[in-house]
């Protein structure tokens, strides 16, 4: 099978346990099997504490599984050394969280430039590129505003711009609309769908909003560390 026909992301037998005290451990993920195709948008639903965020952290190489394998474009992510994983995060994966997590002392444009600068892009090109992306998310007039000078929806748009500026293949979104009112949440969600259509970006989105989740390609349900159910959307 060629790599083109393989799913973009494959997770097999993912388990994650945290030690609690000396002799006991808490198993948060109990053997997750998951695949996401190129350009597919998948919702991840589930109660708080069911392991959704831990799964996102592991898929993004920000945490290691106790056992199991994750491949992205055929690359076994946990066979890479930390430096190589950092390169993958920089170039192939975008992250969006419930809180924008922008660096407060930098302007919107500088925040968006950051992943490019980490990836050794020249500041001039990074500045141009950040400007283009911010324009694409509807913030052309907010380039030099600091996060504190932006509304919640605008802050999240800057965070989205930052996550896609290096043209990743996968977007991992942990409740990206969880901190927004329903109207703003709707517009941010529409932006993510538009980016998916325009850029062919795959996305795994943790959400508690069933209504938004129904508009994605698939919905996965996380129950007590297991992916218990899978439904076809749209």
């Amino acid at each position: 099978m060629s790599s083109e026909s393989l799913p973009l992301l494959i997770a097999k037998g993912l388990k994650k346990a945290f030690s609690v005290g000396k002799n006991s451990s808490l198993e948060v993920l109990k053997g997750i099997d998951l695949s996401i195709d190129k350009g597919e948008m998948v919702a991840l639903l589930g109660d708080s504490g069911s392991g959704k965020s831990t799964l996102i952290q592991i898929l993004g190489t920000l945490d290691r599984p106790s056992s199991g394998v994750v491949t992205l474009n055929g690359i076994n992510l946990f066979a890479l050394n930390p430096k190589e994983q950092a390169v993958v995060r920089n170039q192939k994966i975008g992250f969006i969280y419930q809180f924008h997590r922008l660096l407060p002392e930098f302007s919107a444009r500088e925040n968006v430039m950051m992943p490019l600068l980490i990836g050794r892009c020249s500041p001039k090109l990074a500045k141009e590129r950040a400007g283009e992306i911010l324009e694409k998310v509807g913030l052309a007039g907010r380039l030099d505003h600091r996060p504190g000078q932006l509304s919640g929806g605008e802050q999240q748009r800057v965070a989205i711009a930052r996550s896609i500026v290096t043209e990743p293949v996968l977007l991992l979104a942990d409740e990206p609309t969880g901190n927004l009112d329903s109207r703003t949440a709707g517009s941010v969600f529409e932006l993510l769908q538009k980016l998916n259509q325009d850029l062919g970006l795959s996305c795994l989105m943790v959400t508690h909003n069933n209504e938004l989740a129904q508009n994605l390609d698939r919905q996965l349900h996380m129950i007590d560390g297991c992916l218990a159910e899978e439904e076809r959307g749209k």
């Binding site: 993004g60 920000l62 430096k83 950092a86 995060r89 992943p115 980490i118 990836g119």
Partner: peptide, 9 residues
């Protein structure tokens, strides 16, 4: 934030 943006250790 630096970590998820791909900064090395």
């Amino acid at each position: 934030v630096m970590r998820f943006m791909g900064a090395t250790d």
